[in-house]
């Protein structure tokens, strides 16, 4: 393993290529340098040391890289991810994997608010808890949370799947469209137009598929309940014209 030292500011992106085992130490490398180097890489594995809660780590990746952030990350970690696999060994703050398009982001600790907000594709795995508004406006990605999720999870979510092995906070799935939500524990309350729906064979298969994808063990697909849209809010119906 080699340690990359880069001079802060305005240096050209380090031409990493396939930098297997390359480590960046953020006590010596700026976040901009890190992101520039990662975005220049086409494959390989990378480790980020001493992240110390810095924002915007490993953002905008667009290649099948393996990136491990060894510690806690700040806001928008692995945002806009495509193709890359990003693992954070600690916690993340607001907006991890926001607008992810593909690839995989895994948090071994807890995720802050709005995890995978507006994400179109890929998989977010949170081994700990995820805070409020997890999967807000989700547009097609999958989310597996092994712990609990905070309030307003799945708010306005349109597509994709959210699987929660623990409990869900208040107003789960408020005003959601076609995201499917599975919760193993308790649900504090359901949001507007979110209802519980029967778990059929295809849903059991879907739950198992998500558990397998996340590598979550010790949990049975039969323990989950399904929640989805009653579809009463988002269809315009002529008979409501008179109603205020």
């Amino acid at each position: 393993m080699t340690l990359v030292h880069t001079t802060p500011l305005q240096q050209p992106a380090t031409p990493v290529g396939t930098g297997d085992g390359t480590a960046f130490d953020l006590t010596m490398t700026t976040v901009r340098e890190l992101n520039r180097a990662l975005r220049a890489a086409t494959s390989g594995s990378f480790t980020v040391r001493n992240p110390a809660g810095r924002h915007n780590l490993a953002v905008g990746l667009d290649a099948p890289l393996e990136v491990t952030i060894d510690g806690h990350a700040g806001y928008y970690c692995a945002g806009m991810n495509q193709l890359a696999t990003v693992t954070v060994t600690g916690n993340t703050a607001v907006g991890v994997a926001e607008n992810m398009m593909s690839g995989r982001v895994e948090i071994l600790g807890a995720a802050g608010q709005a995890a995978a907000a507006t994400a179109h594709g890929g998989l977010l795995v949170v081994r700990g808890n995820a805070a409020a508004r997890c999967g807000i406006s989700l547009k097609g990605a999958d989310i597996v949370v092994e712990g609990n999720v905070g309030h307003a999870t799945g708010f306005l979510s349109q597509k994709g799947r959210i699987l929660v092995c623990g409990d869900a906070g208040e107003v789960l799935g408020d005003s959601l469209y076609e995201t499917r939500i599975y919760v193993r524990g308790s649900v504090a309350s359901l949001g507007a137009d979110c209802i519980e729906k029967p778990v059929r064979a295809e849903h059991l298969a879907e739950i198992q598929e998500l558990l397998d994808a996340a590598g979550t063990e010790g949990v049975s697909a039969g323990e989950f309940r399904r929640y989805g849209s009653a579809r009463a809010l988002y269809h315009f119906t002529a008979d409501r014209i008179e109603a205020k």
């Binding site: 110390a52 809660g53 808890n129």
Partner: peptide
Amino acid sequence: EFRAIATLPGAEHAEIWE
């Protein structure tokens, strides 16, 4: 933000939550 806590001794082993 966590980055303010990261400056404290032993922060890497702290129990951290929102």
